[in-house]
C-alpha cells in the first residue's frame, strides 16, 4: 500500500497521471501509477534500476503510449500538443558527432519552435553563460565528455521550457559538475520552471526535491515531501557507549538495536529503531536505568536513503549503498 500524499501542495498541476499502466506482453513495466506535479516544484522520481522510471518519463512525453490510464501534461491530453513548452534530457544522451556545439543547441531549439535567428542567439548566449563560449564552433566529437553533457543539457533548455524533465541528469558527471547542475536546477526553479528529474542517488533528491515519488517494480511506493516521509517512519536514536547496549532491545519502545561501525576508544555506536509512538526520553531513562555510560545520545529522523531502502526493497538496498559513496 503506497504511503504519502499523492496531491501536490500547490494548485494547478502541470502533470497528472491517473492509473497509468504500461505492459510489454505479460510484463508490467508500470502498474497503476497515479500522481500529480505542481507548477514551480522540483519533483524527484526515485526508484531502483528497472523500477519503470524511464518508461514513465517516456509516457509523459508521449514517446511511448500507455497501455491504459490517462496522462495530462500542461493541461493537454498529450505532450505532442505542448512539446514546445517541455524540455527533456534523456538518460541515454547523444549529439550529432559532426555538428558544432552552437548549431546543436540552435537546431533542437528550432525543432521546438524557436525562430532560426533567435535560436542561434540563444545558443551563443547559453554557451557563454555556462563557460563554453570558446567552444561554440567546436564539433561535438571534439568536446570532452563533461562539455558534451553540458551541451546536451543546454539543448534541453534552449527553448525556455516551463516544464523540464530530466532522466538521471547526474549520471556520468563528476562531483563538481554534479554540484553545478544542482545549482542550475535551483536557478531554473527560481525562474518559475517546474522540474521533474529521475534518479536513484538519494543525496541529490534529498538536497533538491520539494516532493518526490518512490517507485519499485512499476508501482508507486511513496509520494510526498521528506517531512511526510520521515513522519511515516519511526525516528532513530544514535547512542555511543562503552557498555553493551543490546540489552535495550528488551525495553519498552525499542524495536531494534543495531551496532554501527567498529568500536573507537573502547566505545561502540548503536542505532536504535523506536517503536511507533515511543518516547525518546523514556528510552534515555531506560538506558540510564540499565547502567549504560553514554557519551552520545542523538535523536535522528530516517534518512531518505533509509526510507528508499525500506520502500523499494532489497534491490534498492543493494544499489543504493555504493551510490551513496558515489554521490558524496
Amino acid at each position: 500500500m503506497p504511503i504519502g500524499d499523492a496531491s501536490p501542495r500547490m494548485t494547478a498541476p502541470v502533470l497528472k497521471l491517473d492509473n497509468v499502466v504500461k505492459r510489454y506482453g505479460d510484463f508490467s513495466a508500470v502498474d497503476g501509477l497515479s500522481f500529480e506535479v505542481a507548477r514551480g516544484e522540483i519533483f524527484g522520481f526515485l526508484g531502483p534500476n528497472g523500477a519503470g522510471k524511464t518508461t514513465t518519463l517516456r509516457m509523459m512525453l508521449d514517446i511511448i503510449r500507455p497501455t491504459s490510464g490517462r496522462i495530462e501534461i500542461l493541461g493537454a491530453g498529450s505532450a505532442v500538443e505542448v512539446r514546445r513548452r517541455i524540455g527533456y534530457l534523456p538518460e541515454e544522451r547523444g549529439l550529432y558527432r559532426k555538428m558544432r556545439a552552437a548549431d546543436s543547441i540552435a537546431y533542437f531549439a528550432q525543432l521546438r519552435g524557436v525562430p532560426g535567428r533567435e535560436a542561434k542567439r540563444k545558443a551563443a548566449a547559453l554557451l557563454e553563460r555556462f563557460g563554453l563560449g570558446a567552444f561554440a564552433r567546436a564539433r561535438n566529437d571534439q568536446l570532452s565528455k563533461g562539455m558534451a553533457q553540458k551541451v546536451q543539457f543546454l539543448c534541453a533548455i534552449a527553448h525556455d521550457p516551463e516544464l523540464l524533465i530530466l532522466d538521471e541528469p547526474f549520471s556520468g558527471l563528476d562531483p563538481i559538475n554534479q554540484h553545478r547542475l544542482e545549482d542550475l536546477v535551483r536557478e531554473l526553479r527560481a525562474e518559475g520552471k517546474t522540474i521533474i528529474f529521475s534518479t536513484h542517488v538519494m543525496q541529490h533528491a534529498e538536497r533538491l526535491c520539494d516532493r518526490f515519488l518512490i517507485m519499485a517494480k512499476g508501482k508507486r511506493r511513496f509520494v510526498g515531501d521528506i517531512r511526510q516521509a520521515r513522519a511515516a517512519y519511526p525516528p532513530k536514536l544514535i547512542l555511543r557507549t562503552r557498555d553493551a547496549a543490546e540489552r535495550l532491545s528488551r525495553k519498552e519502545g525499542v524495536a531494534a538495536v543495531v551496532a554501527r561501525g567498529a568500536p573507537e576508544g573502547g566505545e561502540q555506536a548503536y542505532e536504535l529503531t523506536l517503536a511507533p509512538g515511543a518516547d525518546p526520553q523514556g528510552v534515555l531513562k531506560a538506558a540510564f536505568d540499565a547502567g549504560l555510560r553514554l557519551s552520545r545520545f542523538e535523536l535522528a529522523g530516517a534518512s531518505l536513503h533509509d526510507i528508499f531502502v525500506a520502500l523499494a526493497g532489497d534491490t534498492a538496498a543493494a544499489e543504493a549503498a555504493p551510490e551513496r559513496a558515489e554521490a558524496a
Binding site: 512525453l61 514517446i63 505532442v80 512539446r83 527533456y88 534523456p90
Partner: peptide, 17 residues
C-alpha cells in the same frame, strides 16, 4: 543507425513525432 547508436533519437522524439 548512427542516431540509434548515438542515442540522439530519444531527444529527437521528444521534440517531434
Amino acid at each position: 543507425i548512427e542516431e540509434r547508436s548515438n542515442k540522439i533519437v530519444e531527444i529527437l522524439l521528444s521534440s517531434v513525432t
